[in-house]
């Protein structure tokens, strides 16, 4: 049976660890991931939630909505913020692209999400926020 969760948290850096731990724990509902796969999920969630805090809200106040859905063999994670949005999503997804080089952002957030998850979709409306949808399949189900 499919299962899901929804969690609303304030955009605080101390919640990044909590968010990735929740998703990794929930992912176990989808099946027996390897430790490497679970760590990839944790890292991708960490990147998306950090982006929402740093870029969506410029480290100001706001909420992040974290949703997860599992089916046997896969997990979908949806991370939404209601912040400034991204004007050019394609540009933002380029490796090493960053709007904040002065703060030592290395610009690899989306690259990590794309490398560590199987599908990444980004929807953004300037002034309204950004939604990142990421899916990962258990390795056995990819081969089928």
């Amino acid at each position: 049976m499919d299962n899901w969760f929804e969690l609303r948290i304030p955009a605080l850096s101390q919640n990044v660890q909590f968010a990735r731990a929740v998703v990794a724990q929930f992912a176990l509902e989808a099946g027996d991931w390897s430790l490497v796969e679970l760590n990839e999920i944790r890292t991708a969630v960490s990147e998306a939630v950090t982006n929402a805090i740093i870029h969506g809200y410029h480290e100001g106040s706001g909420d992040i909505l974290l949703r997860g859905m599992v089916s046997p063999g896969s997990i979908l994670v949806v991370i939404s913020d209601f912040g400034v949005g991204i004007i050019d999503v394609e540009e933002a997804r380029q490796p090493l692209f960053t709007t904040r080089p002065d703060e030592e952002r290395c610009g690899l957030g989306f690259t990590v999400m794309e490398s560590f998850m199987d599908e990444v979709e980004v929807e953004s409306t300037p002034g309204q926020g950004t939604i990142v949808k990421m899916t990962k399949y258990l390795s056995f189900s990819v081969k089928q």
């Binding site: 990735r20 760590n39 944790r42 890292t43 960490s46 990147e47 950090t50 703060e103 030592e104 952002r105 290395c106 690899l108 957030g109 990590v112």
Partner: peptide
């Protein structure tokens, strides 16, 4: 046991 690109940024800096 965990690092994301925020950590990488500091190391590269």
């Amino acid at each position: 046991t965990f690092m994301d690109s925020s950590g990488l940024g500091v190391i590269l800096g």
